[in-house]
């Protein structure tokens, strides 16, 4: 029984069957990649998982609880974090504040009114945020405005914001899209590091085969909204159906 169980999920947009009877099980402590050609339904699936889209039928269970019908912030409070294709950070705030906010969300829940005591008096939270920044090597940039960071640093900051909440599951939507080779390699190294140090379960949607094969324990191939094959990276590499549907056009 995986930490995330997707059963018989269907989603139709007008005449387009975006997801057709998707079954997916993500086991705890694995990195599970979801790949597939453009239009295969990867993003739709991700949006279902985070509560942005409600499927027409089927169930999505996270740690034994249904996520369907819950708002994104409620799903995030259950322990699902999301990393976006373009890093979603608080650009106008400092790097430190960017990490403080998830710390407060973790401790105080979705809403708490504390409008009088200054942030700097919250010593435990501040220390926690500083430790996280230290871990991703960004403590020296703590007081810079986040919008001034490089693309790679923004990505690392977003990861730090997710990690500091100690999520049970991290969803990564093409974390290396549009990155230069060096940045991609840095991101892979960072993700590997997170995995060995923290053992966080990850679901990655990715186009870049190098990323997929160097990180994933399990791979699901989606085609036309339906899982085509699921297996270990080696099985996927050699599977003739996958080659035909997807990998045939891509250099591995």
């Amino acid at each position: 029984m995986g930490i995330l169980e997707v059963k018989g999920v269907n989603k139709r947009f007008g005449g387009l069957q975006a997801l057709g009877d998707v079954n997916l099980s993500i086991a705890e402590n694995t990195v599970h990649a979801i790949i597939g050609p453009n239009g295969a339904g990867k993003s739709t699936l991700l949006n279902v998982l985070v509560g942005k889209l409600i499927p027409d039928s089927g169930s999505v269970m996270f740690d034994g609880q249904s996520v369907l019908g819950r708002k994104p912030f409620e799903i995030a409070q259950m322990g699902i974090s999301r990393v976006f294709q373009t890093p979603e950070i608080f650009s106008d705030l400092t790097v430190m504040e960017n990490v403080l906010i998830p710390c407060f969300a973790k401790r105080d829940g979705a809403f708490r009114m504390h409008a009088i005591e200054p942030v700097r008096h919250e010593r435990a939270i501040t220390a926690q945020a500083e430790a996280m920044l230290e871990e991703v090597n960004m403590l020296s940039k703590a007081h810079e405005i986040a919008s001034s960071l490089s693309r790679g640093d923004k990505r690392r900051l977003e990861m730090a914001m997710c990690l500091v909440q100690e999520p049970r599951l991290m969803l990564l939507d093409e974390p290396t899209a549009g990155m230069a080779r060096a940045d991609t390699e840095n991101t892979i190294a960072l993700l590997k590091d997170i995995r060995t140090k923290r053992g966080i379960t990850m679901a990655i949607i990715e186009h870049d085969m190098q990323v997929v094969f160097s990180l994933a324990d399990r791979i699901t191939v989606l085609a036309q909204g339906t899982p085509l094959v699921e297996g270990s990276p080696d099985q996927i590499k050699t599977d003739p159906k996958v080659r035909e549907a997807y990998l045939g056009e891509t250099q591995i």
Binding site: F73, A76, E88, S91, L93, E97, A105, F111, M161
Partner: peptide, 19 residues
């Protein structure tokens, strides 16, 4: 700080688990 974060990025607020 939360209010400034809302001004900056509501999507991130939601996915951080904040209402």
């Amino acid at each position: 700080m939360m209010l400034r974060a809302i001004k900056s990025n509501q999507t991130r607020m939601n996915y951080t688990g904040l209402n």
